[in-house]
Write a protein that binds this DNA or RNA. Structure first.
Lengths: 297, 297
DNA sequence: CGGCGGCTTGATTCGAGTCAAGAACCGTGG
DNA sequence: CCACGGTTCTTGACTCGAATCAAGCCGCCG
């Protein structure tokens, strides 16, 4: 079944499989069908553009090995990394599904990596044939949105926490695809571009993390030496990542009745200035009585 | 066909229809099937929580009329609005598709509004039966992600531009569902919570916009009086919104051959430019054809 | 061994937050 | 129609985190 890949030595597909399973594909046939459609494009070296901005293409890019990032070049000339990609990620999925809104996607290699692709028409066929696959990819899109949202809501945090949070997210995502090494292969520039902080300030922030004994240097890149304290410092709650290790029951939830028992109390505040919010005691659905009505004649 | 709604006066469903069509649903039967499943929950007044955080429910919330926002309460006590919703939006779609990662969604009314819902099992059936609908909702998720991403990439912009950009986005989205009034019913506090700026600073920024003759006050809310200059000031490129008025050929593109000329040159930070093949002239995935979504048996 | 990419450090600047107090506004009820 | 009370906006003074500017250093790689 891997014959199509043999041309380029043995290619590791486990991360993709693992990811799809995480997202609810429980159909072995679907997984194998996907794997059969993967083609290897080649290697990218650190810093290379894996996917040049502005084009559109007939295939979608799959990161087979390594770490990459999606970025934008801002008006001030700096680049803003808005997403990281790990093995098994389709880097330009959104462009496939909604081409108009997603031109200009650029993806660069953070580490050397192996890049593959799948013909768009193959993906179309696959999602048509395996609904669970379509659902999984939809979920992948939502997951990406969750990460963006999380980043948006970090605005009030100081630099130290933001960086810590960023690292936490990477740790969890790495683990989700089976990477457990303590080394996080980001340079400080990567960190700067991803967090939106200046390199200078990242340097100072990083020094703080060093001082706290949470990270260490490992050549150009870094190493997380105290995962626990990192998580604490970042006040990290990885629920938004839907990672199995955090949500052990995900697999049950995925295709079952879409029920979920999250409960978290907090009160909205309206009008009041920055004071403690007033409890409005409005509970879900209390807006009004259900409009129970018959179905269509 | 609207009989199910008649109990609650005439309910306006055009925005939903318009939105779904925008997202590629070209099947009249699908549209009607969706409309038949809509139930009215009731009215929400400005400031009310339409959807309390933390709960989960068996139905998804549809904003039928008015404007709402999704928000989070940050650690500093302020609320961060991370998304606005207009008539026709399913406010908690992501929770339906990926429950684990999306607990804690809270939605509040920005203006008085009419709220409806659809049973989750109905949605499941609908997307299973009408693949184009599944695709449309998937696209809605991606659109939301695009807006988040856009916001992330605004970090380098000064307050004035950020606010202007925010307003531009609202104008386009309003127009996409047929709202053309110059009045944007946001208070300055809404603006502050959405942009992440302090109320004080919004006040000063707003004064600048007033001085430029771009906006005007209209009671508690505001009015855009010079749309053109607003767009220019914000350097607004609404491509990410996939709105018809900006991408006049969208309807062709969605299911037809897509040609898309993003040509934007920029230099990667270091390392050589990509030599990856960039194919263009992509003919769009008619992903819509049969992208089913697993539903309950 | 030279050089460039990457990191560090200090000095300085600046945009935006916070605090505080007051004015304008809005809807409501008398 | 007006007065009242809570919201919402405005303004000034002050603070601070992070950006920028400017050198200098480290260390890997050819």
């Amino acid at each position: 079944m891997r014959s199509v890949l043999s041309q380029s030595a043995r290619v590791e597909l486990r991360p993709l499989r693992q990811k799809l399973v995480c997202l609810g594909v429980n159909d072995e046939w679907a997984l194998e069908a996907v794997e059969r459609r993967i083609r290897v494009r080649g290697l990218g070296r650190r810093g290379d553009d894996i996917l040049a901005p502005g084009g559109s293409s007939k295939h979608s890019t799959l990161l087979i090995e390594g770490i990459a990032c999606s970025y934008n070049v801002l008006t001030n000339g700096r680049r803003q990394i808005y997403a990281f990609h790990y093995a098994g990620d389709l880097c330009d999925l959104s462009r496939l599904v909604l081409p108009g809104a997603n031109t200009g996607i650029a993806v660069a290699a953070i580490t050397d990596c192996t890049v593959g692709f799948i013909e768009n028409r193959d993906i179309e066929q696959l999602v048509a044939q395996y609904p669970s696959l379509a659902l999984a990819l939809w979920r992948a899109s939502i997951l990406e949105a969750s990460m963006f949202r999380e980043r948006l809501c970090e605005r009030d945090q100081p630099a130290l926490q933001r960086v810590a949070h960023l690292l936490c997210e990477q740790l969890i995502r790495r683990e989700a695809v089976g990477i457990t090494s303590a080394i996080v292969p980001f340079s400080q520039m990567d960190l700067a571009d991803a967090s939106g902080l200046s390199i200078v300030h990242i340097s100072r922030t990083f020094k703080e993390l060093l001082g706290l004994g949470i990270v260490a240097k490992a050549g150009r890149v870094m190493k997380v030496v105290d995962r626990e304290r990192l998580m604490t410092l970042a006040a990290f709650d990885g629920a938004y990542l839907n990672a199995p290790q955090l949500l052990p029951h995900w697999s049950v939830k995925i295709e079952g009745p879409l029920l979920d028992q999250g409960k978290r109390v907090h009160r909205p505040k309206f009008g009041r200035r920055s004071e403690m919010p007033i409890a409005r005691g409005l509970k879900d659905c209390s807006l009004g009585r259900q409009a129970g009505c018959g179905a269509k004649p």
